[in-house]
Design a protein around this nucleic acid. Structure first.
Lengths: 332, 332
DNA sequence: GGGTGTGATTTGATCGATCAAATCCGTGGG
DNA sequence: CCCACGGATTTGATCGATCAAATCACACCC
């Protein structure tokens, strides 16, 4: 096998001369086919196919000032087990971006400031023309910077700061964790459980508080427990298996009856199930491979739909500017 | 806050006129600083800083015919738990690529043929100038295609086909699973265990067979078992928690003594540990978050080093063209 | 002084595409 | 018969950078 000296790839001009038209007509066939007369279009398309022509991405980007590329930050793997969620989301986004003729560019960042520096780099270099942000948090400086810079972006995750929720500048997609946890709790109550505990994170995280609220909603409307008993079933620890185990063990040791446990994450669910065994139902959150491997039920985020919604908001700038999707519980 | 009409970003010419030099000198300061006289360079650098100039990536790529971008396929999440490994690898690659002024572009593919179509798309469009391949397998058609196309690539994973191993056209980095498993087994033997079982995958996967070989090496050289007893301790199932549990249970039921189990993956290790509890040491492979969460020991691949080696082979085209790194066991 | 060489800098052309404006051409109206 | 009109197509300029070749500046030597 000999290495050939890379014959120059065909360009619009090559296609044009083969088809007997001008460069611009070829360009039109590619970008606005409807303004080209059908028979001309046919000839050009045949020439494109014959030559195996492909537009040169960089040349197009230089001229149009668009990169057809979306930046996404690749988070460092967390201590927990739920890292896989971002992974699945990323996969779904990449696949759907592909279908829309867009590319996904990765970057990493040590913190918000570092990430903003990356925004600048990628935007100034015309590497990307928009961002998908994940893991939003209270008063996120990143979104503010992007809005000021006039950059396109969509977040997966609501802005948890107070008044940003309705801001049309800030497009977002999120999953209704509250409704998801409420529905899972409802199902458990309907199945005969009365003492359904919640194992979540300490107050202060938007998503975590939201999920806890869902559990309280369900217990409040369907349950038959007084406020004091409810508070006794409300557990909060950092996202770690041993801490979760310890918290559950402590409650049992205190003599509190527990029929079932709903958790804010699969990590916590794993910790709970280690203590409780298979006699007490445990419901996790995120439906990670671990949950399915161990046969734990879990609330699944519709990541493929989320990805679709994110791209649609980013690229089609459709209305409405926000989308809240419902998760569903996978019972095992 | 008012949206300003995006003032044109500064270009080399802007910098040039501010610094009182020509375009090309600015370009030289950026690309070959050593050929510019120090005082001139100083003036240009100051002008660059003052204007906040950043080279326009697409323009540069168009001219140089290099994209400074590397393509990596994002695998669909597998059934197992080990998906996180690729995730960590990806993170390490992205970070180090950044340090080398390169970007990582993602793509997905349904199978090898589809992936080859993606190669063509990305190369023809000058979107990427090289690939990092993961999950290589026997007689992988992808590497062959890339070599024929004269494209740059490095695989994370040896080519398991016979004669490709030494092919200088095919650069690869891999982790010596055989040595890793052998060393873990050795340590267990040194700790007093004699009946160390291996729980791996059915024969036919390059990496899996390699790991099994490591276990046999160790038992053969340090162990004191006859071939028949060794075979009885050699288990093979697909990568699934329940299958792993079943296999271990079957061996125990058959009355075979087991002091410890070394596994080809954390998924299998999890399955084994569910059956064996904490009395029998179980060693997994990949040191996933699950292993650390559950306190299982595991063989850890040095992914950061792998990423560094991959990029060094791809970008520096250094010698040698292959790199085999040793994993280490994390004991818990 | 003129010639020569070397290092630093400038000039003109080019990468491959699209934009904006000009041209072409067939139709229909006055 | 001429002209205006609108759709289809072509032409010239441009995006922002780098390459290749030309020019400049200056020292050195015979």
């Amino acid at each position: 096998m000999t290495r050939v000296p890379a014959p120059r790839l065909p360009t619009v001009s090559d296609v044009a001369s083969v088809a007997g038209v001008s460069r611009q007509t070829v360009s039109n066939v590619l970008n606005s086919p409807d303004i080209v007369r059908p028979d001309t279009r046919g000839r050009v398309e045949r020439a494109i196919a014959d030559l195996g022509y492909r537009p040169h991405a960089s040349a197009r980007r230089l001229r149009t000032r668009k990169s057809s590329t979306i930046g996404i930050r690749l988070d460092p793997v967390q201590n927990g087990i739920s890292g896989a969620v971002l992974d699945r989301f990323l996969h779904a986004v990449t696949e759907q971006a592909d279908a829309r003729d867009h590319r996904i560019l990765l970057y990493t960042a040590a913190g918000p400031d570092d990430e903003i520096a990356q925004f600048r780099r990628l935007l100034d270099g015309a590497d990307v023309d928009g961002f998908v942000l994940t893991s939003t948090f209270f008063d996120d400086p990143r979104t503010e910077w992007l809005i000021d810079a006039g950059a396109d972006f969509v977040t997966f995750g609501r802005p948890w700061g107070l008044d940003d929720m309705g801001d049309p500048q800030h497009r977002w997609v999120d999953v209704d964790g509250r409704a998801g946890v409420a529905s899972a709790t409802d199902d458990l109550l309907a199945g005969g459980a009365t003492h359904v505990a919640f194992l979540g994170w300490p107050e202060g995280s938007g998503a975590g508080d939201d999920r806890r609220r869902g559990w309280r909603d369900a217990l409040g409307s369907r349950g038959a427990l007084d406020p004091v008993s409810i508070d006794a079933l409300d557990l909060a620890v950092e996202d770690s298996v041993p801490l979760a185990s310890a918290a559950v063990r402590a409650v049992l040791d205190a003599g509190v009856a527990v029929d079932a446990v709903v958790c804010a994450s699969d990590t916590l669910a794993l910790g709970a199930s280690v203590v409780l065994g298979s006699s007490v139902p445990v419901v996790g959150y995120d439906d990670t491979p671990v949950a399915s491997a161990l046969g734990l039920s879990s609330v699944e985020q519709p990541l493929v739909e989320v990805a679709g919604a994110v791209l649609s908001l980013l690229l089609d700038d459709s209305e409405p500017r926000h989308r809240l999707l419902r998760p569903r519980t996978i019972w095992r």
